[in-house]
Design a protein around this nucleic acid. Sequence first.
DNA 1: TCCTACATGTAAGGTGTTACATGATTCC
DNA 2: GGAATCATGTAACACCTTACATGTAGGA
Lengths: 184, 184
Amino acid sequence: MTTLGYALLGLLAREPASGYDLKRQLQAPIGFFWRARHSQIYPELARLEAIGLVTYQVVAQHDLPDKKVYTITAEGRGALRDWVATPAEAPVVRDEVLLKTFSLWLVEPAAAVALVRDQERRHVEQLQVYEGLHQQLVQRAGAALTHWDSPYFASYITLQKGIGAERQYLEWCRWVVLLLEQPA
Amino acid sequence: MTTLGYALLGLLAREPASGYDLKRQLQAPIGFFWRARHSQIYPELARLEAIGLVTYQVVAQHDLPDKKVYTITAEGRGALRDWVATPAEAPVVRDEVLLKTFSLWLVEPAAAVALVRDQERRHVEQLQVYEGLHQQLVQRAGAALTHWDSPYFASYITLQKGIGAERQYLEWCRWVVLLLEQPA
DNA sequence: TCCTACATGTAAGGTGTTACATGATTCC
DNA sequence: GGAATCATGTAACACCTTACATGTAGGA
Protein backbone atom coordinates (compact mmCIF):
# COMPACT_ATOMS: atom_id res chain seq x y z
CA MET A 1 0.00 0.00 0.00
CA THR A 2 1.18 3.50 -0.83
CA THR A 3 1.01 6.51 1.45
CA LEU A 4 -1.39 8.16 -0.94
CA GLY A 5 -3.67 5.14 -0.55
CA TYR A 6 -3.82 5.76 3.20
CA ALA A 7 -4.44 9.45 2.63
CA LEU A 8 -7.47 8.55 0.54
CA LEU A 9 -8.66 5.97 3.09
CA GLY A 10 -8.25 8.59 5.82
CA LEU A 11 -10.63 10.90 3.99
CA LEU A 12 -13.08 8.14 3.07
CA ALA A 13 -13.15 6.92 6.68
CA ARG A 14 -14.90 10.20 7.48
CA GLU A 15 -17.38 10.25 4.63
CA PRO A 16 -17.93 8.76 1.17
CA ALA A 17 -16.56 10.88 -1.64
CA SER A 18 -15.87 10.92 -5.36
CA GLY A 19 -12.38 11.12 -6.86
CA TYR A 20 -13.13 14.73 -7.61
CA ASP A 21 -14.09 15.46 -3.99
CA LEU A 22 -10.88 13.82 -2.80
CA LYS A 23 -8.87 15.81 -5.31
CA ARG A 24 -10.26 19.05 -3.86
CA GLN A 25 -9.34 18.01 -0.33
CA LEU A 26 -5.81 17.07 -1.33
CA GLN A 27 -5.17 20.37 -3.08
CA ALA A 28 -3.66 23.63 -2.00
CA PRO A 29 -4.48 25.41 0.18
CA ILE A 30 -6.45 22.99 2.38
CA GLY A 31 -4.45 19.83 1.78
CA PHE A 32 -1.91 20.74 4.40
CA PHE A 33 -0.77 17.23 5.31
CA TRP A 34 -0.55 15.65 1.85
CA ARG A 35 -1.14 16.80 -1.72
CA ALA A 36 -2.00 14.91 -4.87
CA ARG A 37 -3.27 15.51 -8.40
CA HIS A 38 -6.27 13.84 -9.91
CA SER A 39 -3.99 11.88 -12.25
CA GLN A 40 -2.64 10.10 -9.18
CA ILE A 41 -5.93 9.84 -7.30
CA TYR A 42 -8.08 8.10 -9.91
CA PRO A 43 -5.71 5.18 -10.53
CA GLU A 44 -5.09 4.83 -6.78
CA LEU A 45 -8.84 4.61 -6.10
CA ALA A 46 -9.06 1.89 -8.74
CA ARG A 47 -6.27 -0.03 -6.96
CA LEU A 48 -7.99 0.37 -3.57
CA GLU A 49 -11.18 -0.92 -5.10
CA ALA A 50 -9.38 -3.87 -6.70
CA ILE A 51 -8.01 -5.01 -3.33
CA GLY A 52 -11.34 -4.51 -1.57
CA LEU A 53 -10.49 -1.56 0.69
CA VAL A 54 -13.14 0.65 -0.92
CA THR A 55 -16.27 0.16 -3.01
CA TYR A 56 -18.06 2.60 -5.27
CA GLN A 57 -21.47 3.39 -6.64
CA VAL A 58 -22.12 5.42 -9.77
CA VAL A 59 -24.37 8.33 -8.89
CA ALA A 60 -26.26 10.14 -11.67
CA GLN A 61 -26.71 13.87 -11.23
CA HIS A 62 -29.04 16.27 -12.97
CA ASP A 63 -27.18 18.86 -15.06
CA LEU A 64 -23.81 17.47 -13.94
CA PRO A 65 -21.75 14.46 -15.05
CA ASP A 66 -22.20 11.11 -13.33
CA LYS A 67 -19.80 10.45 -10.49
CA LYS A 68 -18.37 7.43 -8.69
CA VAL A 69 -18.93 7.78 -4.98
CA TYR A 70 -16.40 5.72 -3.06
CA THR A 71 -17.04 4.23 0.37
CA ILE A 72 -14.46 2.65 2.68
CA THR A 73 -15.00 -1.03 3.53
CA ALA A 74 -14.50 -2.73 6.90
CA GLU A 75 -11.19 -4.10 5.57
CA GLY A 76 -10.21 -0.62 4.44
CA ARG A 77 -10.92 0.75 7.90
CA GLY A 78 -8.89 -2.07 9.44
CA ALA A 79 -5.95 -1.46 7.10
CA LEU A 80 -6.05 2.26 7.90
CA ARG A 81 -6.16 1.63 11.66
CA ASP A 82 -3.19 -0.76 11.46
CA TRP A 83 -1.20 1.76 9.45
CA VAL A 84 -1.98 4.60 11.86
CA ALA A 85 -0.80 2.53 14.84
CA THR A 86 2.54 1.75 13.13
CA PRO A 87 5.44 4.06 14.08
CA ALA A 88 6.08 6.66 11.37
CA GLU A 89 9.36 7.75 9.82
CA ALA A 90 10.60 11.28 10.39
CA PRO A 91 9.15 13.65 7.80
CA VAL A 92 11.13 14.07 4.58
CA VAL A 93 12.34 17.63 4.57
CA ARG A 94 12.33 19.08 1.08
CA ASP A 95 12.07 22.83 1.29
CA GLU A 96 13.27 24.78 -1.71
CA VAL A 97 13.15 28.02 0.28
CA LEU A 98 15.61 26.70 2.85
CA LEU A 99 17.83 25.54 0.01
CA LYS A 100 17.84 29.07 -1.38
CA THR A 101 18.40 30.45 2.11
CA PHE A 102 21.50 28.29 2.38
CA SER A 103 22.96 30.15 -0.62
CA LEU A 104 21.51 33.53 0.33
CA TRP A 105 25.00 34.93 1.01
CA LEU A 106 25.56 35.01 -2.77
CA VAL A 107 22.95 37.68 -3.47
CA GLU A 108 22.59 41.33 -2.47
CA PRO A 109 20.61 42.05 0.71
CA ALA A 110 17.87 43.73 -1.33
CA ALA A 111 17.27 40.56 -3.36
CA ALA A 112 17.49 38.45 -0.21
CA VAL A 113 14.89 40.60 1.56
CA ALA A 114 12.59 40.39 -1.48
CA LEU A 115 12.82 36.60 -1.38
CA VAL A 116 12.04 36.33 2.31
CA ARG A 117 9.24 38.91 2.18
CA ASP A 118 7.66 36.94 -0.65
CA GLN A 119 7.65 33.86 1.55
CA GLU A 120 6.30 35.86 4.46
CA ARG A 121 3.35 36.93 2.32
CA ARG A 122 2.71 33.32 1.24
CA HIS A 123 2.67 32.11 4.82
CA VAL A 124 0.43 34.93 6.01
CA GLU A 125 -2.11 33.82 3.41
CA GLN A 126 -1.77 30.17 4.32
CA LEU A 127 -2.17 30.97 8.01
CA GLN A 128 -5.38 32.86 7.27
CA VAL A 129 -6.73 29.86 5.39
CA TYR A 130 -5.95 27.55 8.30
CA GLU A 131 -7.43 29.94 10.83
CA GLY A 132 -10.58 30.10 8.75
CA LEU A 133 -10.76 26.31 8.70
CA HIS A 134 -10.24 26.33 12.46
CA GLN A 135 -13.17 28.70 12.99
CA GLN A 136 -15.42 26.49 10.86
CA LEU A 137 -14.26 23.41 12.72
CA VAL A 138 -14.89 24.84 16.17
CA GLN A 139 -18.41 25.85 15.17
CA ARG A 140 -19.28 22.50 13.60
CA ALA A 141 -17.63 20.20 16.12
CA GLY A 142 -18.95 21.53 19.41
CA ALA A 143 -18.02 19.30 22.32
CA ALA A 144 -16.74 16.58 19.95
CA LEU A 145 -13.67 18.76 19.33
CA THR A 146 -11.91 17.28 22.34
CA HIS A 147 -13.24 13.72 22.14
CA TRP A 148 -10.38 11.46 21.09
CA ASP A 149 -12.63 9.18 19.02
CA SER A 150 -14.14 12.00 16.96
CA PRO A 151 -12.79 12.89 13.50
CA TYR A 152 -13.23 16.52 14.56
CA PHE A 153 -10.64 15.99 17.26
CA ALA A 154 -8.18 14.58 14.72
CA SER A 155 -8.87 17.48 12.34
CA TYR A 156 -8.39 19.90 15.20
CA ILE A 157 -4.97 18.66 16.27
CA THR A 158 -3.80 18.31 12.66
CA LEU A 159 -4.90 21.87 11.92
CA GLN A 160 -3.19 23.15 15.05
CA LYS A 161 0.05 21.65 13.77
CA GLY A 162 -0.42 23.46 10.47
CA ILE A 163 -1.18 26.74 12.23
CA GLY A 164 1.82 26.38 14.53
CA ALA A 165 4.12 25.59 11.61
CA GLU A 166 2.92 28.63 9.65
CA ARG A 167 3.41 30.91 12.65
CA GLN A 168 6.89 29.57 13.18
CA TYR A 169 7.70 30.11 9.49
CA LEU A 170 6.40 33.67 9.70
CA GLU A 171 8.41 34.47 12.82
CA TRP A 172 11.51 33.19 11.10
CA CYS A 173 10.85 35.28 7.96
CA ARG A 174 10.47 38.41 10.06
CA TRP A 175 13.61 37.65 12.05
CA VAL A 176 15.63 37.15 8.85
CA VAL A 177 14.35 40.42 7.38
CA LEU A 178 15.37 42.22 10.59
CA LEU A 179 18.87 40.77 10.35
CA LEU A 180 19.18 41.72 6.68
CA GLU A 181 17.87 45.25 7.15
CA GLN A 182 19.84 46.19 10.22
CA PRO A 183 22.73 48.49 9.25
CA ALA A 184 26.05 46.67 8.84
CA MET B 1 18.31 22.31 -14.00
CA THR B 2 16.95 20.24 -11.15
CA THR B 3 16.58 21.37 -7.57
CA LEU B 4 19.10 18.75 -6.53
CA GLY B 5 21.56 20.34 -8.94
CA TYR B 6 21.21 23.65 -7.10
CA ALA B 7 21.57 21.89 -3.76
CA LEU B 8 24.91 20.50 -4.94
CA LEU B 9 26.00 23.87 -6.36
CA GLY B 10 25.06 25.48 -3.03
CA LEU B 11 27.41 23.17 -1.20
CA LEU B 12 30.19 23.46 -3.80
CA ALA B 13 29.93 27.28 -3.71
CA ARG B 14 31.29 27.03 -0.16
CA GLU B 15 34.09 24.56 -0.78
CA PRO B 16 35.16 21.90 -3.26
CA ALA B 17 33.95 18.42 -2.39
CA SER B 18 33.72 14.87 -3.70
CA GLY B 19 30.45 13.12 -4.42
CA TYR B 20 30.97 11.22 -1.21
CA ASP B 21 31.42 14.43 0.80
CA LEU B 22 28.23 15.84 -0.71
CA LYS B 23 26.38 12.63 0.07
CA ARG B 24 27.32 12.99 3.74
CA GLN B 25 26.07 16.56 3.85
CA LEU B 26 22.76 15.65 2.22
CA GLN B 27 22.08 12.81 4.63
CA ALA B 28 20.17 12.57 7.86
CA PRO B 29 20.58 14.07 10.36
CA ILE B 30 22.48 17.10 9.07
CA GLY B 31 20.83 17.50 5.66
CA PHE B 32 17.92 19.41 7.09
CA PHE B 33 16.96 21.38 3.99
CA TRP B 34 17.30 18.71 1.34
CA ARG B 35 18.20 15.01 1.27
CA ALA B 36 19.61 12.80 -1.45
CA ARG B 37 21.24 9.40 -1.92
CA HIS B 38 24.54 8.82 -3.62
CA SER B 39 22.74 7.13 -6.54
CA GLN B 40 21.19 10.49 -7.34
CA ILE B 41 24.23 12.61 -6.55
CA TYR B 42 26.82 10.96 -8.79
CA PRO B 43 24.78 11.20 -12.02
CA GLU B 44 23.75 14.75 -11.15
CA LEU B 45 27.39 15.79 -10.68
CA ALA B 46 28.15 14.28 -14.10
CA ARG B 47 25.34 16.39 -15.61
CA LEU B 48 26.59 19.55 -13.90
CA GLU B 49 30.06 18.84 -15.24
CA ALA B 50 28.69 18.21 -18.75
CA ILE B 51 27.04 21.64 -18.85
CA GLY B 52 30.09 23.38 -17.40
CA LEU B 53 28.74 24.40 -13.97
CA VAL B 54 31.36 22.35 -12.12
CA THR B 55 34.75 20.83 -12.90
CA TYR B 56 36.60 18.05 -11.18
CA GLN B 57 40.08 16.78 -10.48
CA VAL B 58 40.93 13.23 -9.56
CA VAL B 59 42.80 13.23 -6.26
CA ALA B 60 44.85 10.18 -5.28
CA GLN B 61 44.93 9.33 -1.59
CA HIS B 62 47.27 7.10 0.37
CA ASP B 63 45.43 4.10 1.88
CA LEU B 64 42.08 5.31 0.53
CA PRO B 65 40.44 5.14 -2.92
CA ASP B 66 40.95 7.94 -5.43
CA LYS B 67 38.29 10.60 -5.39
CA LYS B 68 36.90 13.19 -7.78
CA VAL B 69 36.98 16.58 -6.13
CA TYR B 70 34.40 18.87 -7.72
CA THR B 71 34.76 22.65 -7.88
CA ILE B 72 32.07 25.13 -8.89
CA THR B 73 32.82 27.24 -11.99
CA ALA B 74 32.06 30.95 -12.51
CA GLU B 75 29.07 29.88 -14.64
CA GLY B 76 27.94 27.55 -11.88
CA ARG B 77 28.11 30.36 -9.35
CA GLY B 78 26.15 32.61 -11.72
CA ALA B 79 23.47 29.98 -12.28
CA LEU B 80 23.15 29.43 -8.53
CA ARG B 81 22.87 33.16 -7.85
CA ASP B 82 20.16 33.55 -10.50
CA TRP B 83 18.21 30.64 -9.05
CA VAL B 84 18.46 31.99 -5.49
CA ALA B 85 17.11 35.38 -6.58
CA THR B 86 14.08 33.78 -8.27
CA PRO B 87 10.90 33.61 -6.14
CA ALA B 88 10.37 30.14 -4.69
CA GLU B 89 7.24 28.05 -4.56
CA ALA B 90 5.65 27.27 -1.19
CA PRO B 91 7.18 24.15 0.33
CA VAL B 92 5.54 20.86 -0.59
CA VAL B 93 4.08 19.48 2.60
CA ARG B 94 4.37 15.71 2.74
CA ASP B 95 4.30 14.64 6.36
CA GLU B 96 3.30 11.05 7.02
CA VAL B 97 2.90 11.80 10.72
CA LEU B 98 0.27 14.45 10.05
CA LEU B 99 -1.48 12.02 7.77
CA LYS B 100 -1.62 9.49 10.59
CA THR B 101 -2.71 12.23 12.98
CA PHE B 102 -5.63 12.97 10.70
CA SER B 103 -6.87 9.40 11.26
CA LEU B 104 -5.84 9.24 14.91
CA TRP B 105 -9.48 9.09 16.03
CA LEU B 106 -9.59 5.49 14.76
CA VAL B 107 -7.14 4.14 17.34
CA GLU B 108 -7.21 3.83 21.12
CA PRO B 109 -5.71 6.72 23.11
CA ALA B 110 -2.89 4.45 24.32
CA ALA B 111 -1.79 3.71 20.74
CA ALA B 112 -2.18 7.37 19.81
CA VAL B 113 -0.02 8.49 22.72
CA ALA B 114 2.63 5.92 21.78
CA LEU B 115 2.70 7.29 18.25
CA VAL B 116 3.08 10.90 19.33
CA ARG B 117 5.65 10.12 22.02
CA ASP B 118 7.70 8.27 19.42
CA GLN B 119 7.71 11.41 17.28
CA GLU B 120 8.54 13.54 20.29
CA ARG B 121 11.62 11.42 20.92
CA ARG B 122 12.68 11.71 17.26
CA HIS B 123 12.40 15.48 17.34
CA VAL B 124 14.25 15.80 20.64
CA GLU B 125 17.15 13.96 19.03
CA GLN B 126 17.02 16.05 15.88
CA LEU B 127 16.89 19.24 17.92
CA GLN B 128 20.00 18.17 19.81
CA VAL B 129 21.81 17.57 16.53
CA TYR B 130 20.89 21.03 15.26
CA GLU B 131 21.85 22.68 18.53
CA GLY B 132 25.21 20.95 18.35
CA LEU B 133 25.71 22.21 14.81
CA HIS B 134 24.74 25.68 16.01
CA GLN B 135 27.38 25.60 18.76
CA GLN B 136 30.03 24.56 16.24
CA LEU B 137 28.93 27.27 13.85
CA VAL B 138 29.02 30.06 16.42
CA GLN B 139 32.54 29.08 17.45
CA ARG B 140 33.88 28.84 13.90
CA ALA B 141 32.14 31.84 12.39
CA GLY B 142 32.95 34.57 14.88
CA ALA B 143 31.86 37.99 13.65
CA ALA B 144 31.09 36.60 10.18
CA LEU B 145 27.96 35.02 11.64
CA THR B 146 25.99 38.21 11.05
CA HIS B 147 27.63 39.36 7.81
CA TRP B 148 25.11 38.91 5.02
CA ASP B 149 27.77 37.95 2.47
CA SER B 150 29.26 35.18 4.59
CA PRO B 151 28.26 31.54 4.10
CA TYR B 152 28.29 31.30 7.91
CA PHE B 153 25.43 33.79 8.01
CA ALA B 154 23.42 31.70 5.55
CA SER B 155 24.15 28.53 7.53
CA TYR B 156 23.11 30.33 10.70
CA ILE B 157 19.72 31.48 9.50
CA THR B 158 19.02 28.13 7.83
CA LEU B 159 19.90 26.29 11.04
CA GLN B 160 17.73 28.62 13.08
CA LYS B 161 14.80 27.68 10.86
CA GLY B 162 15.50 24.01 11.51
CA ILE B 163 15.78 24.58 15.26
CA GLY B 164 12.56 26.59 15.33
CA ALA B 165 10.70 23.95 13.34
CA GLU B 166 11.88 21.17 15.68
CA ARG B 167 10.83 23.15 18.75
CA GLN B 168 7.43 23.80 17.25
CA TYR B 169 7.04 20.12 16.42
CA LEU B 170 8.01 19.19 19.99
CA GLU B 171 5.57 21.65 21.55
CA TRP B 172 2.82 20.24 19.40
CA CYS B 173 3.66 16.64 20.37
CA ARG B 174 3.53 17.55 24.06
CA TRP B 175 0.26 19.41 23.64
CA VAL B 176 -1.33 16.43 21.87
CA VAL B 177 -0.15 14.03 24.59
CA LEU B 178 -1.70 16.32 27.21
CA LEU B 179 -5.02 16.32 25.36
CA LEU B 180 -4.96 12.53 24.98
CA GLU B 181 -4.02 11.85 28.58
CA GLN B 182 -6.41 14.23 30.27
CA PRO B 183 -9.38 12.33 31.72
CA ALA B 184 -12.41 12.28 29.44
C1' DT C 1 36.36 -12.99 10.04
C1' DC C 2 33.04 -9.77 9.62
C1' DC C 3 31.57 -5.10 9.71
C1' DT C 4 32.22 -0.23 8.76
C1' DA C 5 34.05 3.63 6.23
C1' DC C 6 35.77 5.32 1.96
C1' DA C 7 34.70 5.87 -2.89
C1' DT C 8 32.00 5.65 -7.32
C1' DG C 9 29.02 4.07 -10.22
C1' DT C 10 24.45 1.51 -12.75
C1' DA C 11 19.73 -0.62 -13.00
C1' DA C 12 15.11 -1.39 -11.84
C1' DG C 13 11.13 0.07 -9.95
C1' DG C 14 7.97 3.20 -7.57
C1' DT C 15 6.08 7.85 -6.95
C1' DG C 16 4.71 12.28 -8.61
C1' DT C 17 4.05 16.02 -12.25
C1' DT C 18 2.70 17.74 -16.60
C1' DA C 19 0.28 17.21 -20.50
C1' DC C 20 -3.21 14.96 -23.38
C1' DA C 21 -8.17 13.81 -23.87
C1' DT C 22 -13.31 14.44 -23.59
C1' DG C 23 -17.73 16.65 -22.70
C1' DA C 24 -21.71 19.31 -20.34
C1' DT C 25 -23.12 23.41 -17.78
C1' DT C 26 -22.82 27.96 -15.78
C1' DC C 27 -21.14 32.54 -15.34
C1' DC C 28 -18.99 36.83 -17.35
C1' DG D 1 -17.64 33.59 -27.20
C1' DG D 2 -14.56 32.18 -23.65
C1' DA D 3 -13.32 30.72 -19.12
C1' DA D 4 -14.33 28.02 -14.96
C1' DT D 5 -16.39 24.08 -12.63
C1' DC D 6 -17.73 19.38 -12.55
C1' DA D 7 -16.13 14.76 -13.66
C1' DT D 8 -12.94 10.92 -15.04
C1' DG D 9 -9.45 9.01 -17.14
C1' DT D 10 -4.50 7.91 -19.75
C1' DA D 11 0.39 8.79 -21.29
C1' DA D 12 4.89 10.52 -21.05
C1' DC D 13 8.27 12.08 -18.39
C1' DA D 14 10.95 13.51 -14.29
C1' DC D 15 12.40 12.43 -9.81
C1' DC D 16 13.60 9.44 -5.99
C1' DT D 17 14.49 4.95 -3.61
C1' DT D 18 16.22 0.44 -3.34
C1' DA D 19 19.11 -2.83 -4.86
C1' DC D 20 23.06 -4.42 -7.52
C1' DA D 21 28.08 -3.99 -8.25
C1' DT D 22 33.12 -3.51 -7.03
C1' DG D 23 37.30 -2.85 -4.34
C1' DT D 24 40.61 -1.35 -0.34
C1' DA D 25 41.77 -0.40 4.52
C1' DG D 26 41.07 -0.55 9.38
C1' DG D 27 38.94 -1.96 13.64
C1' DA D 28 36.31 -5.41 16.74
